[in-house]
């Protein structure tokens, strides 16, 4: 797929179009992230820098709670590894979707934008994934993510408490939007998700277990429930490639 320049422009434009609704969704969530980052003691610059270099909702929220709790760098690395491990699956699926001869620097560029949402629009493209499409989608979505963070971090203090409270669920709303549709299609996903929510709550409330930090709790629950689910309900190839 040595594409000619006009193909690249077309793919890039389609990428931008796919990226616009993602960017709008990211604005609300990253706005909430910006507010929370600043209230955890980070500066506007640091909050924005995190969004630009990480581009991951769940990982970033967990990251600022590790920073606020003065966790170790090792705990930070472990939390990021487990929470973002799902990107490894997505990156693996995308590795099957691109031109086998695609140069490494372009692969590294596509890798930067492996998020739940960008992955979903990329994997749904017909045929081989054009790097220009990824570039358009990533630039647009990341712009929304970084801008929202900056605005939230910058204006968090002047917003009313009611608005900040309402924005507090934006991130979780996004998570629900990612989990529920596949859980509706696949009973095993629904069961695994319910068990995960149950175990997480158990760790949160039960004596002794509740002493475990939130980052470590998510690591333990994710590994245990995913192993259990993989043993009890093995998935075929088709599921892994199609889910975002």
């Amino acid at each position: 797929m040595r594409s000619n320049p006009s193909d690249s422009v077309k793919n890039f434009k389609e990428g931008v179009q796919a990226g616009i609704p993602i960017a709008l969704g990211y604005l609300a969530v990253s706005f909430a992230f910006g507010i929370q980052a600043v209230s955890s003691g980070l500066s506007v610059f640091q909050a924005t820098l995190i969004s630009l270099t990480n581009v991951t909702s769940a990982g970033q929220f967990a990251g600022i709670s590790v920073i606020a709790a003065a966790g170790s760098y090792i705990e930070m690395a472990g939390v990021q590894f487990i929470i973002n491990l799902r990107y490894m699956l997505m990156s693996t699926a995308l590795s099957q979707k691109i031109d086998p001869d695609l140069p490494v620097y372009k692969r590294l560029g596509i890798a930067f934008g492996v998020t739940d949402e960008i992955f979903a629009v990329s994997i749904m493209r017909k045929g081989v994934l054009a790097p220009a499409f990824s570039a358009g989608a990533i630039i647009t979505a990341v712009l929304g993510w970084v801008l929202g963070t900056f605005l939230g971090a910058f204006s968090g203090e002047i917003l009313s408490a009611a608005l900040i409270s309402a924005l507090g669920v934006a991130l979780y709303g996004m998570f629900v939007a990612i989990v529920v549709p596949p859980a509706r299609e696949n009973r095993n996903v629904a069961i695994a998700s319910l068990i995960a929510a149950g175990c997480s709550s158990l760790f949160y409330f039960a004596p002794v277990l509740k002493e475990i930090s939130s980052g470590t709790r998510i690591i333990i629950v994710t590994v245990a429930v995913s192993v259990l689910s993989a043993l009890l309900f093995p998935q075929g190839t088709e599921g892994a490639a199609n889910e975002g």
Partner: peptide, 29 residues
């Protein structure tokens, strides 16, 4: 490996569910 594929398949949903519940209940006032 079917086991690794299945494990990776469940990770996103399990992580996001564990992160959402019970944390969402303390996310507002």
């Amino acid at each position: 490996s079917p086991f690794i594929k299945s494990f990776l398949y469940y990770v996103p949903y399990v992580t996001l569910s564990a992160m959402t519940v019970p944390a969402i209940f303390t996310a507002t006032r």
